[in-house]
Simulated scan of single mutants.
Amino acid sequence: MGLPEPTLTKIAHVHVLLDPVQTLGQTPHGLRRIIPITGGSITGERLSGEILPGGADWQLVHDDGAATIDTRYTARTHDGALIYLATSGVRHGPPEVLERLAAGDEVDPREYYFRVTVRLETGDPRYYWINRAVFVAYAARHPDAVAYDLYTLD
């Protein structure tokens, strides 16, 4: 008996606004950076609303320039439900591309690899389905934001 082939269903586009990077410095795990989240939006048929200020990305940058992504933040849906979002993933690419990203340049996301898993959690019965799904995303880094398309793994 074979297993089903994975398929993806797009749920929403997420646009997360960021404050400037706070660099803590070199730690035993890598260069620790904290990037505060100041707002944003979620736009989709099944899920839409606003990103609330107060979260952050507790990011590690490694010697090769690759970044380990670790974000936690909250959204409020268009109808008032609160949703916790946490992403975990990686961003890497050729050194010259990563340098352009670090300089704040707008870089085509096809030039680097930026993928995350996204855990969503809520107690609101209208959105309880998000507690029971696996989410993945293709992401892009912009000078003052991160954007990603959120998919369920069906």
Rank of each mutant, 00 (worst) to 15 (best):
Asp105Lys: 08
Ser88Gln: 15
Glu96Ala: 13
Ala102Trp: 06
Trp58Cys: 12
His78Trp: 06
Pro28Cys: 08
Asp63Pro: 08
Pro125Asn: 01
Val90Trp: 05
Ala56Tyr: 05
Arg119Pro: 03
Gly54Phe: 13
Leu101Ser: 09
Tyr113Ser: 05
Asp79Phe: 14
Gln59Ile: 13
Glu99Asp: 15
His62Asn: 11
Asp57Gly: 06
Val21Pro: 02
Ile34Gln: 05
Thr68Lys: 15
Arg33His: 01
Ile69His: 08
Ile37Thr: 04
Glu111Thr: 12
Arg110Val: 15
Thr23Tyr: 06
Arg72Thr: 10
Trp129Thr: 05
Thr77Asn: 03
Phe114Met: 12
Thr27Asn: 00
Val21His: 04
Pro20Gly: 01
Asp70Glu: 13
Asn131Gln: 08
Leu82Tyr: 14
Ser88Gly: 14
Ile69Glu: 07
Arg76Ser: 08
Gly89Ile: 04
Ile51Gly: 05
Thr117Met: 02
Arg126Cys: 04
Pro20Met: 00
Val118Pro: 05
Gly49Asp: 09
Ile37Met: 07
Val97Ala: 08
Ala81Ser: 15
Ile42Asn: 00
Arg32Met: 14
Tyr128Phe: 13
His29Cys: 03
Glu121Asp: 08
Asp64Met: 11
Arg126Ala: 09
Ala75Asp: 01
His78Ile: 11
Leu60Asp: 03
Gly93Pro: 12
Thr27Glu: 00
Tyr73His: 10
Tyr127Arg: 00
Ile37Trp: 04
Gly93Thr: 14
Asp79Ser: 11
Ser88Leu: 14
Gly80Ala: 15
Asp63His: 12
Ile130Thr: 01
Gly80Ser: 12
Tyr112Cys: 14
Leu47Gln: 00
Arg100Asn: 07
Gln26Val: 12
Leu101Val: 15
Gly65Asp: 11
Gly65Tyr: 09
Arg100Tyr: 07
